[in-house]
Each structure stands twice: as C-alpha cells, then as structure tokens.
Design a binder for these strands. Structure first.
Length: 155
DNA sequence: CGTATTTGACCAGCGC
DNA sequence: GCGCTGGTCAAATACG
C-alpha cells in the first residue's frame, strides 16, 4: 500500500519531544461547543468527487513526532471523533478535530508499526483563531508556525 | 450539568 | 458489480 503520498504539501519533521510532558487528561478551558454538527448531512463531502482541485485540495501536514503520548498539546483543543484500525498498522489510528466553531481543522494521529515511540501527526487545514493558551512549548509553536507560514506561502 | 470520549454503523472511493 | 479499506457521524457513556 501507499504510506506516503500527499498531493499538497508534505512535511516530515522529526521532533524529539521525549522530554515534553503532555497530559492526556482534559482541561477546563474554553466553553465553545461545535453545534454545527447537528446540521451536518449524511452526504457532505461527496459533492465534488475529484475534479476542480487537481493539485491542492486539502493541505495535509505529516509530522513524525517522537513522543510517548498520542495527543500532542499544541495549544488547541482537539475532540476525538473516531478511531479506526488500519490494516497496515498494528495500532489504531485516531481522528481529532479542533473544537472551535468555524475552525474545522482536522488532526490525525497514527502510530508507526515499526516504532511505537514514533507517532505520525497529520494536520489538515488551518486554524481560524489564535491559541489563547500559552501552555504549549516554544518548540512546538515553532513547528506549528513554520508549517503555517509555508502553508500561507503556498497560497 | 456540560463536554469530551467511546464505540458501532454507515458511506464513499478504489481495487479486483 | 462486489468487496475492502478508510473516514466520518451519531448516540451513549464517562468524567470534571
């Protein structure tokens, strides 16, 4: 199967976050709930099959982060909306979405079957808002900023 | 009580 | 044309 094939931008950065202490728990910050989900239709993403956007359809950034935690806290809140087990991998893939109305940024986390300590974080889309929390590390901020810069530059 | 998280089912695209 | 994989949503549950 194909493991790496991104039509748009592809970034493979190795970040050593072993020292990073991320918490998997939940934090009581922000009270925005995406109620737009109720208006979602069963057929929402099948309007355009695969035409019109031959090259760039959805920017996807793949990050290979060396961390023991699945979810990297980049300053935004992510709500897990699904988990699927891929046949190519022994570990299930987790799907996250940014919990912010208007900011439907998707994040996909997958563990490497080869290295359990390496997680592939794939960001899809760009944030519509700024992170109101400074808890994220400069290290990650730098990466995020870099990828957003390249993203804006590509436009 | 509010929200995130969990799990199952459903759907669409692609392969054969 | 059918089957499989991958992806998303939706309802129920858990937790703060």
């Amino acid at each position: 199967m194909k493991e790496e094939e991104e039509e748009g931008l592809k970034f493979d950065l190795l970040i050593d976050n072993s020292n990073n202490k991320n918490k998997v728990g939940t934090e009581s910050t922000g009270t925005s709930y995406d109620k737009n989900l109720s208006e979602k239709n069963r057929k929402m993403m099948k309007s355009s099959p695969k035409q019109g956007l031959p090259e760039v359809k959805r920017h996807k950034f793949a990050f290979q982060t060396r961390s023991q935690v699945d979810v990297l806290d980049d300053g935004y809140r992510w709500r897990k909306y699904g988990q699927k087990t891929v046949k190519n991998g022994r570990f299930p893939r987790s799907y996250y979405k940014c919990t912010y109305q208007g900011c439907n940024v998707k994040k996909q986390i997958q563990r490497l079957c080869k290295d359990e300590g390496v997680v592939v974080t794939t960001y899809e889309g760009m944030h519509n808002h700024s992170s109101d929390d400074h808890k994220y590390n400069e290290n990650f901020d730098h990466i995020l900023r870099r990828m957003q810069t390249s993203y804006a530059n590509a436009l």
